[in-house]
Structure formats: structure tokens, C-alpha cells
Write a protein that binds this DNA or RNA. Structure first.
Length: 220
DNA sequence: CAGTTACG
DNA sequence: ACCC
């Protein structure tokens, strides 16, 4: 939908309601056995307001003692993360333009008061691979900046079914979630938690695209 | 006041 | 500048 030379793309309404509902079903079934955990900031131990889990061979976690990292096991249960739903492989193939499959799907649940401060994704060895994000449930105020801690930011509303791609230079842009707009979607089943689920697909390790000779190049 | 937020 |  919105295409730009920065590598930022907002695919407004990329997933229709049926596709969103099918994805939610796949997500909730996996969250049942890989429960949401409460991440904590490195050093301070301050708890984040967003709750998380992961799918795929690797998952992003953080805690006071060991900080930000990817690991193969759930930090609470010690079990391997559930597999990635096929629909997410398909989405990655459709929008990422990257030759290697995703290895991590970070599942972020934002309750009505949750936020995520401005940050730059930097924990992946595959630092040139795009990041693909899917919004499900309540709308969110998303803020996108540039590559430096200073500089202007712009805010965008992300609605259920929207897909965001951060590729090229935008892969290293600051971004965060200022707030959730409670009650703006009926997608999440009554009886589950209210709010927003964001799925973020990432390539973590260097694959074919990370071999010597084509570092940093964008595949056709 | 420190840590965080917002960049309106 | 604002919040706790």
C-alpha cells in the first residue's frame, strides 16, 4: 500500500477478517502450551507492560540478569517454542523479499494500558533481513522515527489486519507503541484477554543471504 | 527527583 | 514536560 525509498511499508488491511481469525486461532492454540511471560529490562529488572511468547526455532527474551537475546527455549517452561503457523511462512514469502525463512515470531500481547518504548531492533545477526509485523485486535498508535536517537518521528494508527515491513534503511529505524485504543476491534475472542496481539517475524541467523560476497545486498 | 515519555 |  504505502511504499517508500526508506524501506518502510504499511500494507493497510493486508489480511482480511477471515485470515485474521484463522491466524488468531493458530496463535491462541500455541499460546496455550507456550504461555505469555513478563519480560524485564536488563540491569534494572523493570517489568515491561507488554507480555510475550514466541513461535519458531528461536525466540526473543529479556530478563534482568542476561538481557536481550534469542534462545530456543521458553524462559519459564523450558520447553521449545511451538512451530510457526504455515500462514506466517506464506506471509513472509509474500512480503519480505528475503530468501531465507523466518526463524522467530515474537508474539506481543498489549493489554489496554500497555506501551512499548522507542527502540531499534538490533539483536539479530541477520541485521539486513526485513522485519515483518502483523497487527491483530485493538488498534495501536505506532511511532516511527529515524535511525538516530534524535530527529523527527511520525505516528500512525495500526489496525487489525495491517502488515508493516521494515526493510532496507528502515530496518534500523526507531519505533515503538505509544498506546492501545481499547475496544476498537472484535477480533479477539471474548473470554480471552482484551487488547492487541502483534506478531513480529524475523530472520535471526545469517542464512544464504548472509554468505560472504553479498553482505547487505537486497535480493531481487 | 529519576526515569520515562513525547516529539502535538 | 511529565509522572510517580
Amino acid at each position: 500500500m504505502l511504499q517508500s525509498e526508506t524501506g518502510f511499508r504499511l500494507l493497510k488491511g493486508h489480511l482480511d477478517r477471515a485470515a485474521q481469525a484463522a491466524l488468531v486461532e493458530a496463535v491462541l492454540a500455541r499460546v496455550d502450551r507456550s504461555p505469555l511471560f513478563t519480560p524485564a529490562m536488563p540491569r534494572t529488572g523493570r517489568k515491561m507492560s507488554v507480555r510475550m511468547t514466541n513461535f519458531g526455532p528461536l525466540g526473543w527474551v529479556t530478563d534482568k540478569d542476561r538481557g536481550y537475546r534469542y534462545q530456543a527455549a521458553h524462559p519459564v517452561t523450558g520447553e521449545a517454542w511451538p512451530n510457526l503457523p504455515q500462514a506466517l511462512f506464506d506471509l513472509w514469502e509474500a512480503v519480505s523479499g528475503w530468501p531465507d525463512p523466518p526463524e522467530a515470531c515474537l508474539v506481543n500481547w498489549y493489554g489496554p494500558g500497555a506501551r512499548l518504548g522507542q527502540h531499534i531492533d538490533a539483536d539479530e545477526d541477520a541485521k539486513f533481513a526485513p522485519v515483518v509485523s502483523v497487527s491483530l485486535g485493538d488498534s495501536a498508535k505506532f511511532r516511527l522515527g529515524g535511525p538516530t536517537p534524535k530527529g523527527p518521528t511520525t505516528s500512525l494508527t495500526l489496525d487489525s489486519g495491517d502488515v508493516v515491513v521494515l526493510a532496507g534503511p528502515a530496518r534500523r529505524f526507531r519505533h515503538g507503541v505509544d498506546r492501545i485504543y481499547p475496544g476498537t476491534s472484535t477480533l479477539l475472542p471474548p473470554g480471552w484477554r482484551p487488547g492487541r496481539i502483534n506478531l513480529t517475524l524475523r530472520r535471526v541467523t545469517k542464512g544464504q543471504a548472509g554468505q560472504a560476497g553479498d553482505r547487505g545486498t537486497q535480493p531481487a
